[in-house]
């Protein structure tokens, strides 16, 4: 079995295992929704070398697009999701096109500034977005013969989409396109010298990333029945980026780990202590200092340790931590 198929099997196992280990279908759905968003972020960070602080833009626009479609038109669910995907892709094309005019830290600052721009846009046009309150009472219509009202039914729908999206992203990553992105990440100057229009490739990567993130945003809005202002806020961009980095930027499955860890741990901590972000902040520092390959790197070291000699059973207790689904 090659690496890509192994990772797909792992992703499928996560989708199957979540209902077995978790009591809340809503939380389980949230894990997979953010796994999509983080994997899309990773296509930029890990494959193209672009650290985007603007993923919340596409997530938020996806939420609004789906919400507006379902509230104001009689279009079916599929159309709402498709429109959200398109909204994410279009916005990402624009943001990417402008942001990659500058490189390095300027690029990062631009993406952050654009995320502020879209936040104020959503905040200013209250008639459309509901402003501070968000778009309320978004319905969750059936898809064909399947009703999605019940939380685990919706989870099943999300899980199917998650696996489709994951497989599609894997396909993108291993295509000539994805391999060119890796080359651009490695040595942009050489990529241009051998004939690749680097900017066009970066913008396309943005469009793909934005499309998936828009879809994730739409699924999230349907999950909670609201398209809140917080979906397009700075903190959404920040969270998606954090999930991606905590998971590890080396492969797409790492982002699933990162999202799972972040969503579950934040749910757990926030129910214990409302100021849990303090601990998260500390965790980020720890990750940067000691865990630069993220959870995936930790998992790799663990597997290696287990293979190299079973003489140290002391390591066994570390195990559940790395998967982060001990609930």
């Amino acid at each position: 079995m090659n690496r890509a198929s192994l990772h797909f099997v792992l992703a499928a196992l996560v989708a199957i295992a979540l209902p077995l280990f978790m009591r809340s279908g809503t939380l389980a759905s949230e894990v997979l929704i953010f796994a999509m968003a983080a994997a899309a972020c990773n296509l930029l960070l890990g494959y193209t070398g672009l650290l985007s602080f603007g993923q919340g833009i596409f997530f938020g626009l996806g939420s609004y697009a789906a919400g507006l479609t379902l509230l104001h038109t009689s279009l079916p669910l599929g159309a709402a999701l498709a429109l959200a995907t398109i909204a994410g892709a279009v916005a990402a094309t624009g943001v990417g096109w402008l942001s990659i005019r500058r490189q390095g830290v300027y690029f990062v600052m631009l993406t952050l500034a654009f995320s502020q721009f879209f936040y104020f846009l959503a905040y200013t046009f209250k008639d459309v977005t509901g402003g501070d309150n968000g778009l309320l009472n978004i319905p969750r219509p059936a898809i064909g013969p399947f009703a999605l009202g019940e939380s685990w039914a919706y989870y099943a729908f999300v899980a199917v989409l998650f696996l489709l999206v994951f497989a599609a992203l894997q396909r993108v990553a291993s295509s000539t396109f994805g391999r060119t992105l890796l080359a651009i990440r490695d040595n942009e100057e050489r990529a241009r010298a051998i004939g690749f229009p680097v900017r066009l490739f970066k913008i396309t990567a943005f469009a793909v990333s934005g499309a998936v993130t828009g879809l994730a945003g739409a699924l999230h809005a349907l999950l909670i029945g609201v398209a809140p202002l917080s979906s397009i806020e700075y903190h959404m961009s920040e969270s998606i980026l954090i999930m991606t980095i905590i998971g590890g930027s080396g492969n797409l499955f790492a982002s699933v780990l990162g999202a799972g860890f972040y969503v579950i741990v934040s749910d757990l901590l926030s129910s214990i202590w409302p100021r849990w972000l303090l601990l998260l902040g500390g965790l980020l520092v720890v990750v940067a200092l000691f865990m630069q390959k993220g959870l995936w790197g930790l998992l790799e070291r663990l597997v290696e340790a287990l293979q190299n000699g079973r003489k140290s059973p002391v390591e066994a207790p570390v195990r559940p931590e790395s998967e982060g689904r001990s609930i």
Partner: peptide, 20 residues
């Protein structure tokens, strides 16, 4: 370290200050 980790650490610090 690469810029990614500068950003990660300072984002972490900012969160900690805000929560404090």
């Amino acid at each position: 370290l690469p810029h990614t980790f500068h950003i990660l650490v300072t984002v972490g610090l900012a969160l900690m200050v805000q929560e404090l």
